[in-house]
Simulated scan of single mutants.
Amino acid sequence: MNNHLIVVGVDGSDGSRRALDWAAGEAADRDTAVRAVMAWYWDGVEADVLTATSPEEQRRHASQVLHRQVQEVIAARGTHLPITAELVEGSPAAVLTTAARGADLLVLGSHGHGRLRHSVLGSVSEAVIRKATCPVVVVPTPVPASIPE
């Protein structure tokens, strides 16, 4: 690994926040930059009527989510390493695998948005793992501790 770049898939979910935080820590250890990438597109299937009523609104909402998530991680970590944000129109798996070409690492959260998409089309993480040309890290979502009986 010598390109000095970690790409992280961001979608506003807790899983992607955890992935971005993990990547920022890894980047600090490696003296590597982080690029947070969020894919967006408009099809109306999962659009939140309260936040997105048109493609322009969907893009604006996605941009706000991306930049808020990046700023939260920068504020929490106080990192001196660059974390850039990139908003790209397209399907998440295609956008992320393209963004990660030549990267040292691609980092994803294990669960993001899109239960309907997952049940119909499959997981973004699964598709990315099959298509990626660099190592992929999937940061797991913590499992709640079981209640003693």
Rank of each mutant, 00 (worst) to 15 (best):
M1Q: 08
L5T: 03
I6Y: 00
V7D: 02
D11T: 01
S13Q: 02
S16D: 03
A23N: 06
A23R: 05
A24R: 00
G25L: 05
A28C: 11
D29W: 12
R30A: 13
R30Q: 13
A33E: 15
A33N: 13
R35P: 05
A36K: 03
A36Y: 01
M38A: 07
W40Y: 07
W40E: 00
W40I: 05
Y41M: 09
W42I: 08
G44K: 07
A47Q: 05
D48S: 15
L50N: 13
E56M: 08
E56P: 03
Q58H: 09
A62C: 10
V65F: 01
L66E: 00
V70G: 00
Q71G: 14
T79N: 02
P82N: 06
I83Y: 07
A85Q: 00
E86S: 12
E86R: 10
L87F: 07
G90I: 07
P92Y: 06
T97E: 01
A99V: 06
A100Q: 02
G102H: 08
A103W: 01
L105G: 01
L106D: 01
V107G: 00
S110Q: 11
H113A: 10
L116R: 15
L116C: 04
L121V: 08
G122Y: 07
S123K: 09
S125M: 09
E126V: 15
V128G: 03
I129V: 15
K131V: 08
A132K: 06
T133L: 09
P135D: 01
P135R: 07
T141Q: 14
A145V: 13
I147R: 12
P148I: 08
P148F: 01
P148C: 04
E149S: 14
